[in-house]
Write a protein that binds this DNA or RNA. Structure first.
Lengths: 259, 259
DNA sequence: GGGCCGCGTCAAGGAAACGTCAAGAACCCG
DNA sequence: CGGGTTCTTGACGTTTCCTTGACGCGGCCC
């Protein structure tokens, strides 16, 4: 997959430093009962540089699957003995390798069913060679790559917030925050060094309608302060701006990171 | 009375979870210049439980993308200022989040081009609601999943899971799990230490359409906990994240600690 | 320095999320 | 066509968290 896809791509793929070149011969299991179409698929996919194994029935497909551990499965819905749905289900109980379903029927209900069962893609006959290969390569590329580490993090002094994992640590010590406290802290850190008014915080963290409930805000600030204080005593993170709002102390607006 | 204003508003105003801090719902960026179709997409995707952000031009799309860091992008090919290809390319230079392309043109060359550039899927108008949602959910599910290791067994602390013959043992003791419990445990172990939201588990283990059935999830969690507890009393494996989801405790992803 | 308003604190009520029990429905196997 | 297992649904007790109230302290302004 590295080969063909990269060839006509103008830009370098981002940070795909993975240079394990030894997966040239990936194995594709082709489940299809019509001999002609099966042969055609084998020809096409083989031409694209993959090894192929055919299976004419659902049972045979599962046997081959367990025995050979293919890297990808092209699966026709209407195969005998066990139909495509059942095969997909059985495979998904054990593995998450890419499964591309192919069928003559284009009923939307079928597509949805297949996709919900965990199919990676759903194609209807007739299908052309380039598209088939493109979809196969796409599926394999995604499979080989680690999931998008969207690790969004915020930092402020010794504070570190992982937004995806919903975790906050202070100097290595874990902060056990309630959902509201967490949202409040995130709100403040995103505006670290800046003055934020009561109204801004209330509408931002609680939503419209809380704009005047300053007391509620004070309570949550208090709880948050207590938890920060427990982990890092003496460090004053949240400063009160008398009559206005609050401000996260420390280095003013850090340099915005690229991205 | 400090709370005079507070008393007059409805007791619990709708929690407009619109703040960026509240990231329980996943964010979908919709790039589409036809206002009608854009609105329709927003309606549909919003109904399925996602937050949406529209963008009418390619330039705006990139701005929104960098600014909001969406979890998924629905991208029309024919948007002005920068077309879909260019937007996709720019995104792929930086990120690997799922991008679903939509277009009126069904030329096969286009499909191949999109898929090679790294699009996760390619849909041609007209497209139906169920299929759209199914493809979105499929893409998100795959994005959140760890790469499909072909390993036949998983380990986590004293837990050992054999994927081939559906067996799970805890410190040598056999766990007799039902199919659903087994899938749930596998799902959690594959993400050990990470927070998984209710929605993620429900769509991942049960399939799309269960996204809001939290009660069902609680029941299964309970049964699974009971069986774990029976074999290893006192060991808390599944932690509850109040208001969010669950987390498998133990050797979590270590948090980078400065100094 | 005195009054006023804002702020922080302690404490308790109530709502939402969670865990639990139990019974009905769907399913699979023999 | 039963019997058993598993999945699903409903109702209820429990925990956690959010919200509200009352009170004392302290800064700000005249």
């Amino acid at each position: 997959m590295v080969h063909a896809a990269a060839r006509d791509r103008p830009h370098r793929p981002p940070r795909t430093g993975d240079t394990r070149a030894n997966r040239v011969n990936e194995l594709v299991l082709i489940v299809e009962d019509e001999p002609e179409f099966s042969a055609l698929l084998e020809l096409w996919i083989g031409q694209a540089g993959y090894r192929t194994v055919p299976a004419g029935t659902g049972r045979e497909a599962l046997q081959r699957f367990h025995e050979l551990r293919p890297d990808l499965v092209v699966l026709d819905v209407s195969v005998p003995v066990l139909d495509g749905w059942q095969v997909l289900e059985r495979i998904r109980e054990v593995s998450r390798i890419p499964v591309l379903m192919v069928t003559a029927r284009s009923a939307e209900g079928d597509k949805v069913r297949g996709l919900r069962l965990g199919a990676d893609d759903y194609m209807t006959k007739p299908i052309g060679f380039p598209e088939l290969i493109a979809r196969i390569e796409g599926a394999l590329r995604r499979a080989h790559q680690p999931p998008p580490s969207r690790a969004r993090e915020l930092r402020h002094r010794a504070l570190l917030i992982d937004l995806d994992d919903h975790r906050a640590t202070l100097g290595g010590g874990e902060l056990r925050l309630t959902p509201t406290e967490f949202r409040l802290l995130v709100f403040l850190v995103e505006r670290s060094g800046q003055l934020v008014t009561h109204r801004q915080v209330l509408t931002g963290v609680w939503g419209a309608g809380y704009g005047t409930d300053v007391h509620l805000l004070r309570m949550t600030i208090r709880n948050l302060r207590a938890k920060l204080e427990a982990v890092a005593p003496g460090e004053a993170y949240i400063a009160t701006e008398y009559g206005l709002g609050y401000r996260l102390t420390g280095p003013a607006r850090p340099i915005p990171e690229p991205g």
